[in-house]
Structure formats: structure tokens, C-alpha cells
Design a binder for these strands. Structure first.
Lengths: 187, 187
DNA sequence: TATATGCTGTACTGATCAGTACAAATCACG
DNA sequence: CGTGATTTGTACTGATCAGTACAGCATATA
């Protein structure tokens, strides 16, 4: 009875949405089973180490998406402005203009962080480093590039928290707009 | 056998720390019982509606603390600069210079938000409103005050997320420093 | 059409969950 | 010293949890 869902990879988007909605602890295998359309048998066939392995796969998928769609462009683009511009567009798309939370940030806030420490740190460090590099190439001093990169990622994460808290996605789009302006203006 | 712990209020700080550490769903009554020193009997005596009522009490306590230590000064201070300065000091103290997460923000990120929707919104709206008021009195235009208040709260929340993600509290103190500078400089 | 492989559903395990019931213990107050 | 309200520990409930075991089905290859 091979492949109702052909690949383990096909389950990952649904897994991500479940973890985003309920957190790691709150995501029961029953819910996961329903949302992925995979029975327990299949789930443990694809993810022998259970829920932890599912979450790791999702975190890896998130990081890979950002690597391919954000970090690589920040690092490679001839014109650093284009890389940064692309980042804001990709981020806006990825977080559904403020209607979707950051899974990595959400995992970081409670003791779930301790289970996925390395992956969480990797995600944010890779982002910080790529953005810092782009800003330096844009003419920022080392110090200034580091500070500004941190400021931008801080604002994106905070805007996601506040948008969800107030149930007002525009908090997020306003924050992105401010950041774009902040970059193009001096400093 | 009245009062081993004299007041329901005495349990709230410990409750807050448990919820901060494990989230709402992850906080088991066993853990809560150990950390507060109260058996199940006592817990359900003080909080007849169980875990939900405990979390509500903690959220109310947080909001009251901010009302008394942050919002009131923002609204009442003769010199708005003093109110804002006091806010930064209080926030730095409250979040232990980046080593403590925001419980309200943490609750907002997953489906826990839906259980405490009103309280979460109240907390952030009260903060936004008080800060906007102070900025207007400091001479900011309506538009500018609203935008800047949102920017500050976004940055504080994001800095808490990123500090915990990278396990580097200085992310938070750097963000506060930037915000102070941002306020005192023009814009 | 046989066989091996890979996928799936179902039934189960023991642990833990939130919440309840209640009797015993303690103190305030008379 | 006794009575009554308040606080507490303990034992219990039924539900749900993550994870396991395994039989059986479907398909690809031969």
C-alpha cells in the first residue's frame, strides 16, 4: 500500500501549520494525524523518532526556505539594495503580511527552546549574519551594520508578536514600511 | 487549617514563573503544585476554575504591575520625558535585562491567545495608548506619536524573542539603548 | 502471478493530564 | 474548651497523551 502521500516532505507544510497553531507541546498526534492526513502508522514510518523529529524537519524546512529565498540573495546579490529589498518582499510573503507567526520565535519563548536550541540559534544567526554582510556592502560601518541588522530582525519578530496580540496584521506591514524607510534614509 | 500561604495573591509570582517557563498548556498541575507549594486541594480552593483562572490571575497581575509602574507615570508625569525614562528603567527591571520573557507576548503566539484574547489585547493597547499620550505631550504629532509608540513596543517584544533565541540577553539591552537614543534624537 | 518492499489502519500500552470528592486538620472566635 | 468556617492532603475519575506492535494491503519488479 505504498504512498498515499508520496513523500515525507509532502507532510511538512501541514506539520508546520499545526505547530504554528498549537505550539510543540500543544500539538497532539491526533491533531497532527488529522491535519496531515497520515495515520499514526505512517507518521512513525516517516518520522521514527516521533514528534520531536517532525518538529526538527519543520524547523529545517523553514531554515532552508529562508536560506534559498532570503539569505542567499542577501549574500550574493551584486547590488546589496536588491538583496535587502528582496528580503522585505520575501518576509512579507512568508508571514502572510502579519497573519502568520514565526514558528522559530514561538518555539523560543518557552522550554521548547531547549529541545531545539541549535536549530533556533542557527536560524537567527544565519539571518543576522547575511543581513549584516549586505549592509556592510551597502556602505554601513561594521558596527553600524551589526546594530542595524539586529534592529531589523528584532522589529520583524516584535511586529509579529504585536500583530497577533492585537489581532491587527497591519502592525506588521507598518513595521516593514518603517524599516524600509529607515534603511534607505541615512544612518 | 487556614493559611499555610496566607493569600491567594502570594501564589501568583510562582504561578507566573511556571507559565513563563512552560507556557499555558505545558504547565501541569503537578508542576504548579510543586512550585507554588500548594497541593491540588489548595489550588482549587483559591482558583475554583482551575488552570485557566490561575493564568487569568497572573495576566491581571502583570497588567496591574504595568499600570502602576509604567502606564500611570507615562500618563501623569508633568515632564513626559520623565515618564518615558521611567518606562525604560521599569521595563529593563521587569524583564531582568533580557533574561525574562514577556508572558503576554508568549501567550499570544499560539492558540493560547484565544483563551485570553481580551486580557492580551488590553495589556498591549493600554501600553500603546499611554506611550502615545506621553509622546504627544513631548511634542510629537499625532501620527508620529502613534507610529513611534508602536515602534517602541514592537522593538521591546522582538528583542525579548531574539535575546531568548540567541541566549544573549544583551540583544535586549542594546535594543533599549537604541530606543532611548531614538527618542531623544529628532524624528 | 508470485514475492518483496513500503506504507497504512487499528488496537494496544502505561503514563500523565485536569479536575473532583471528601475527610481530616487547623485556627478564629466564642 | 468547643464549634464552625477555611485550608489542606490524598485518593480517585475518565480522558487523552506519545509511542509501539503488528497484521494486512498495494504496488513495482520479476
Amino acid at each position: 500500500m505504498p504512498r498515499k502521500i508520496a513523500e515525507r516532505q509532502d507532510a511538512i507544510p501541514a506539520l508546520g501549520e499545526v505547530f504554528r497553531e498549537y505550539g510543540f507541546l500543544g500539538s497532539s498526534l491526533t491533531e497532527i494525524s488529522q491535519r496531515t492526513g497520515l495515520g499514526k502508522g505512517s507518521l512513525y514510518h516517516f518520522f521514527p523518532n516521533g514528534k520531536k523529529e517532525m518538529a526538527e524537519a519543520v524547523l529545517d524546512d523553514v531554515t532552508n526556505w529562508f536560506r534559498d529565498n532570503v539569505f542567499s540573495t542577501l549574500l550574493s546579490s551584486n547590488k546589496p539594495e536588491d538583496g535587502i529589498q528582496n528580503m522585505f518582499e520575501a518576509v512579507d510573503r512568508y508571514f502572510h503580511s502579519g497573519k502568520r507567526v514565526c514558528l522559530v520565535g514561538a518555539f523560543a519563548l518557552d522550554d521548547t527552546r531547549d529541545r531545539f536550541e541549535a536549530r533556533i540559534r542557527t536560524y537567527f544567526c544565519a539571518w543576522t549574519d547575511a543581513l549584516t554582510t549586505a549592509l556592510k556592502r551597502k556602505g554601513f560601518s561594521d558596527q553600524d551594520a551589526t546594530e542595524t541588522a539586529e534592529e531589523i530582525i528584532v522589529s520583524i519578530q516584535g511586529a509579529l508578536v504585536l500583530a497577533r496580540s492585537k489581532q491587527d496584521p497591519q502592525v506588521f506591514t507598518r513595521a516593514l514600511k518603517r524599516l524600509r524607510r529607515h534603511i534607505t534614509a541615512g544612518s
